[in-house]
Design a protein around this nucleic acid. Structure first.
Lengths: 134, 134
DNA sequence: TTAGCAAATGCGACTTAGTTGCATTAGTAT
DNA sequence: ATACTAATGCAACTAAGTCGCATTTGCTAA
């Protein structure tokens, strides 16, 4: 993805083109797995303020540029792609050894039985195991 | 479950019978949904030290008396029953309105496809929706 | 181009779940 | 009863994430 395309991505979602945002998006585009706050902070050469970074992650999530992943580590991870809507849901793989989180794009959400009176609207799946690198 | 049974539960797992632990277990036994630290603290009449409570939850989890549930709220919840092993896994239901967490005992774990080189060992599922009470 | 406004940034202080070290207390085995 | 070990309580700490506010920057319309 070219710089121009990244800028378009921001404009398309009504977000201003700032250095921080472009740097973030550029990194997300190169990353092949989900990124934590720390991953992002250490990847970006000139460091970004904590609140700024978190606020941008929120904005990106809100407009659907990225989605937040809870891998049960207590630390949120983020990856390109919008919040999975009905039909586009995908599971996430968490490596037990290196703790890297991958999106399992091809995964289909299972239809689960819920008790009488309960109404399910969304299913979130996390697969734990060992990744290809470990 | 009688007091004697609760004591046996502790002994069986090599844990000492203390007032705090018995109170905790008694409450877990009456609870019909997963309990957070706050739930437990406010349910127990004489309050328990924070570290003591957390340490006991860890001990219980370690020996398999309870299991910890991550409902993506950032707050761990706990419920009776050991860490789900192959075959005894179950999903968890999180109410979008009241945030109560229920164990879906009857749920079967879905078999998910993972990419080449990846090895899945466990699948954790969270179902979001509206519970019977809401 | 520039003036002006709203949005984004950076900074610091704060919140809150959970942890750790340590002295004291209480279970348990002998 | 004794003595040892584990559990408790307390206080101080950690770390992810949030919030208020002053300053800066991007965008728009004159």
């Amino acid at each position: 993805m070219e710089s121009e395309e990244l800028k378009l991505l921001l404009v398309k979602h009504g977000l201003r083109k700032t250095k921080v945002r472009l740097a973030l998006l550029r990194h997300f585009h190169h990353a092949h797995h989900a990124q934590s706050y720390k991953d992002l902070q250490s990847a970006l050469t000139n460091d970004i303020d904590k609140s700024t970074l978190y606020r941008n992650l929120s904005s990106f999530e809100e407009v659907g540029i990225i989605h937040r992943i809870d891998d049960h580590s207590g630390i949120s991870k983020y990856a390109l792609g919008g919040i999975p809507s009905k039909g586009s849901e995908h599971a996430h793989f968490v490596c037990d050894r290196c703790e890297t989180v991958y999106c399992l794009e091809a995964s289909t959400p299972p239809e689960l039985e819920v008790p009488e009176g309960f109404k399910a609207s969304q299913v979130q799946t996390i697969v734990k195991g060992i990744c290809a690198k470990c």
